[in-house]
């Protein structure tokens, strides 16, 4: 058993791993010596990210697609030989430019829910066996949902994104209630406003200098995961 604050040899999977926060997490975990698998839709970007970070495992897939779920889970488990930390980072804004809810097509709302809510739900289910096995082996597994302050605060024109993130946040809390006894910790993390492609698509006029660096948000999240795992490790079984 490794020390919970030590990332070496920990098996970590990240969705949305080729841009923004996801890419920053892949880089930070790779540097820290973790075994990393990441998922993204664009095959060329997956290949170039994996080539730039030797030893990481790039998986092409779309978490919004039901048919991709088990293929992704299979490749994560196969590449890493199991799983200790699962970070649901892949996210869509919904239709851009952002628009009023009354102007949002229902298909666009459904698409946002598919990526931001149903996708993480399915992938957690498909990987729960591996996470529970990690728990039985003393691996202190952890699932992370990347949320947003839009999950809590109702901002006009952020409807599809906000509603899906609010549902994700609540689902994260329910997973926490249900998985705690199995020794699987579940976190929701709001990384703040970051200088990412997603933020630029939402607010093209924002000054990037005023936004948080994804690498800083990644470091904060990894600290929180390490702290949480250490707390479980210290707690009586």
């Amino acid at each position: 058993m490794t020390h919970p604050s030590d990332w070496r040899d920990l098996r970590v999977a990240i969705t949305g791993g080729t841009s923004g926060l996801g890419l920053a997490l892949v880089r930070a975990l790779h540097a820290a010596g973790a075994h990393v698998a990441f998922v993204a839709r664009n095959a060329a970007r997956v290949a170039s990210t994996a080539a730039a970070l030797p030893g990481t495992h790039g998986i092409v897939g779309d978490v919004a697609r039901k048919d991709d779920t088990h293929r992704i889970a299979l490749q994560i488990n196969a590449a890493l030989g199991g799983l200790d930390v699962l970070i649901h980072n892949a996210s869509t804004l919904g239709p851009t430019p952002l628009r009023l809810l009354a102007d949002t097509d229902c298909e666009d709302l459904e698409a946002a829910l598919a990526t931001n809510l149903v996708g993480p739900f399915r992938l957690t289910k498909a990987l729960l066996g591996a996470l529970a096995a990690s728990a039985r082996d003393g691996g202190h597994p952890c699932i992370v949902h990347i949320t947003s302050d839009a999950a809590v605060t109702p901002y006009a024109s952020w409807g599809a994104y906000s509603a899906s993130k609010a549902a994700l946040l609540h689902m994260s809390r329910i997973w926490h209630e249900e998985l705690h006894d199995l020794g699987i910790e579940v976190l929701a993390q709001d990384p703040g406003d970051m200088d990412t492609p997603l933020h630029a698509a939402a607010l093209p006029d924002a000054d990037p200098a005023s936004l948080k660096r994804p690498a800083a948000a990644a470091a904060e999240l990894l600290d929180r995961i390490a702290f949480t795992r250490a707390a479980i490790a210290g707690a009586p079984a």
Partner: peptide
């Protein structure tokens, strides 16, 4: 489908 043949506890493929 794959999900038909994975048990609830399925891990390593």
């Amino acid at each position: 489908a794959l999900w038909d043949v994975w048990t609830r506890v399925a891990a390593l493929p």
